[in-house]
Structures are given as C-alpha cells and as structure tokens.
Design a binder for these strands. Structure first.
Lengths: 241, 241
DNA sequence: CCGGCTAAATACCGGTCGGTATTTAATTAG
DNA sequence: CTAATTAAATACCGACCGGTATTTAGCCGG
C-alpha cells in the first residue's frame, strides 16, 4: 500500500508550523508563499491538504486551542486544587505560553480578537468562541468554588469570570508588546489579590462545552510550584499528549 | 494670496479619517486606495501631504494620542480629584472611547501593540511609547497619592501602575471583540476594588513626558458623574480643545 | 484673457497577492 | 518494464499592492 510519490512534508507538522506563522504574523501579515516556504510544502500541497487561506487559519486556531487554550480550561474545570491555586495556574499558564521563547509572543486568540474584529465571521468568530468558552470555564469554576465554600456566598461569579478572563487578554497583549515574564508574574500576583478568600468543601456548577479536539495537545500537569528559587523562572509543566 | 487650484479635501480632516480607518482595519488591513477613497484625497495628494504609508500611520497614531490617550494621561496627572475618582475616570475613559458607536471599536494603541509586534521599529515603537507613557503617568499618580496619604505607605506603586495599565489593554481588547459597555463598566468596577484605600492630603512625584502635540485634542472635563440613572449609560464628558 | 501656480485626476510602474493548471518526479502494482 | 497513482515543482492567472509620472482642472495676479 501507500502508492504514489511519498510526502516530503508531514501535513501535521506543516499545520503546526502554519499555526506559529499565523500566530506570529497574523492573518493578513501571512502570505501563502510565506506558509509554503516555512512549512516546506508547496502551495498546491497546502490547498490540497488544508483548503484555502481562511481554512488553514481556522485549522491553525483549532490546533492552538488543542495545545494551549483547551488544556488550560480543562485544568480549570477538572483540577482538585484550591481555587486560589487553580486560577493562579491558569494565569501563569498564559504567561508561560505567551512569553515562551520557543514560540511566538502573546496569544493567538487575543491576536485574532484584535486583528479580525470586523472581518468576515469565518475569521471573527474563531477567537470569540474561545474567549466565550474561557469565560464560561472560569464562571463554572467560581460557581463550584462558591458551593464548596471557597468563595463567599455573595461573590459575584459573573464579574469574577469576566475579570480573570480579561486578565488573560491583558497578559497576552503585554507579552506581545515585549513585557518580560518577571513583570507578567508580578501582574498575576497583583490580579490574584482581587480573589475573595474563605475555606470549606463540596462541588457543582454546569460545565461549558470544551471541544474534544482541544484535548489532543500538551496539557499542564504538575504538583504546582511557583517561584522555586529567587530569580529562577517558575514553570508550569507540560507533557506531550 | 492662496493661488492655484483650491483643495478639495482639508488635510486635517483627511488625517482624521485616515486615523479612523487605520484604527478600524489596522496597518496591513488598510490599503492606500482605501485611504484615498475614504478621505476623498487622491493618492498623490496623500503622499504629498503626509508621506508614505508608514508616515501616515505614524501621524494617525499621533492624532489618536492628541484626541484620546494624551488627554486621559493629562487628566490623570493634573486632576485634583481623589485617586479613586481619577483612576476610575481613566478606565471609564477607555471604555467610552473603545465602545463609542461613532468611532472604531477598541483602542488604536492596543491594536498597534498586537498587530505591529515584530514589525519594523517605525511601526512597533509607536504603541510601545504610548504604553510606556501611560504606565509612567499611572505610577506618578500613585506616587503622589501615596505621599498625599491616599495610598498606604507600603503600597507597591509599580505593581499598581502595571496592573491598571494592563486593565486598559484588557478593556480595549474586550471592546474590540464586541463586549457591550455594560460589561466593561462592570469590569471597571471589579478592577477598582483592587485599589487600596486610606485618606489625607499633599502632593509630589515626578511627571513623565507628555508630548505637547497630544494636548490639542478633546480632553475630559466634568464634574465627574458615574451611572447617573439606572440603565442609562454613564458618560465621561469631553469638550473640544 | 492670459500665464503661472497649485492641486486633483488618471494612468501607469514593478511586485506581490490568493489561487490554480500543468508538468515533472517518485513510488507501487502488475 | 509498464501503467497507474500520488505528490512535488513550476509556471501562470487576474487582481491588487505601494508608490509615482503625467495630464487635467480650477483659481490667482497681471
């Protein structure tokens, strides 16, 4: 089996590269020739494997979610850690991925929100959907926390969810603008002081839809540790799927 | 005097339009033909009056600062109102300008930070400079507040400045993604709860450079009023220069 | 009414855009 | 070795890009 000329480029690896190029340069800032040269896959191959430019962009976004956004929301919903730790890990995860020197700066979703506002829905809706899921996940976690007694009875779940969802956007933009991780972790520290504090035990809250394709990527694990040694960069650990 | 064929388009009005087009569509998303048709000024006229595309973009950014960012920082530094009110007005100003139905959604500066990261310094530096000035202005105001006794002695000025500067970015992105002003005002309310509270009287703190050209635009005035009637949109008042 | 001045308008430049048709190379089944 | 199959590689399409040279239109002082 497997007749015909063998592939030069693995489509999966090509999509991974395409994701990073779109993430780095944006939709308009990336040309099909860019994608072709960066992936090593000739233009006709790109169209044959993925479709037109918009389709590639959408697939790139989905891949980003599988590797980054999805697992973070997953952790937010599934983790047994305290609210404090879980939310902190969520924001730390944004910092880590947004300042990772191995990848583009910032957050693909945030970039999409800014760049593609007012563009065709096929582009505009991508980031908005993820943003909405993120907010729902936060709200669900806060809801559960309130029922568990981790938050006071009068805590405003919606406001808290909107707030911490917004912090992720702020971190993303600051990272893209070149802010160092030290600054961003300080920012997280500050933002975390807004979280009301109490203590008890239980569960609940309805969980938002998390696309199953999003679970393929690397996901945060760890006994979570922050600021291990002074000056040493604290790390949120990931493992391959 | 005033010989030759009369101008069809006032260059100042043209630049104002160009600013809004760039603000709305971004640098790459705007073509010279777009600018020509939107401003009513033919392409050679644009080049003669403003220079090439990058130069127009830079002038558009400067104009944005004159009309929006600059006056807000000015108010932040010069206002005699309490810290609470001043910071709140700053964030409310972001909400108002970022959701104004008469203009593009979001913030030109934030858009630039996201889109132009990694692009030539002539583009990249524009937003970063404004962002830096904003943070300095906030820091100066917090510094003054601490000396006046509006903040506790141990308040972390740098962290607070970074935090509230980041809130402006978060608001800008959320607004651009279509969040309604009701949501954004709720967000401001939440963010304001992070500000430590005390009371007393005095002044101080060095003020950052605010470009004089930035003072030409509309500036916030007002006996400041928030949430006048339930359901009615609270307004930050502006006056023409 | 004319000649000079200024800006608008048009046409045009080479280059690149997203997208595709065509040709060539590499492999397997018979 | 041949035919079929698959993908790579090249060349190419019309449209539009940023930028400019050239022509045309409108107003002035004389």
């Amino acid at each position: 089996m497997a007749r015909g000329r063998p592939r030069k480029t693995d489509p999966d690896a090509a999509l991974d590269t395409a994701m990073k190029v779109f993430w780095e340069r944006g939709f308009e800032g990336t040309s099909m020739n860019d994608l072709s040269t960066m992936t090593g896959m000739a233009k006709p191959g790109l169209y044959a494997n993925f479709g037109d430019k918009e389709a590639i962009y959408a697939k790139a976004m989905e891949r980003y979610c599988s590797a980054y956004a999805g697992p973070m929301l997953e952790d937010l919903l599934r983790s047994d850690d305290s609210l404090e730790i879980t939310v902190r890990r969520f924001l730390d995860g944004v910092v880590v991925s947004a300042t990772d020197t191995m990848g583009p700066k910032g957050c693909f979703v945030a970039n999409n929100l800014v760049e593609c506002a007012g563009k065709p829905p096929s582009l505009e809706a991508l980031g908005r959907y993820v943003d909405e899921q993120r907010q729902k996940a936060l709200a669900a976690r806060f809801q559960a926390a309130r029922q568990k007694g981790e938050l006071p009875e009068d805590a405003d779940i919606k406001s808290l969810a909107e707030f911490y969802s917004g912090q992720a956007l702020a971190l993303a933009v600051m990272a893209r603008a070149g802010a160092p991780w030290t600054t961003l972790y300080r920012f997280v520290d500050t933002a975390m002081t807004l979280l009301p504090a109490v203590e008890a035990e239980e569960t609940g809250g309805e969980k938002p839809e998390i696309r199953s394709e999003w679970h393929e990527g690397i996901i945060p694990l760890t006994p979570y540790k922050r600021s291990v040694a002074p000056g040493r960069r604290p790390v949120v650990y990931f493992k391959a799927k």
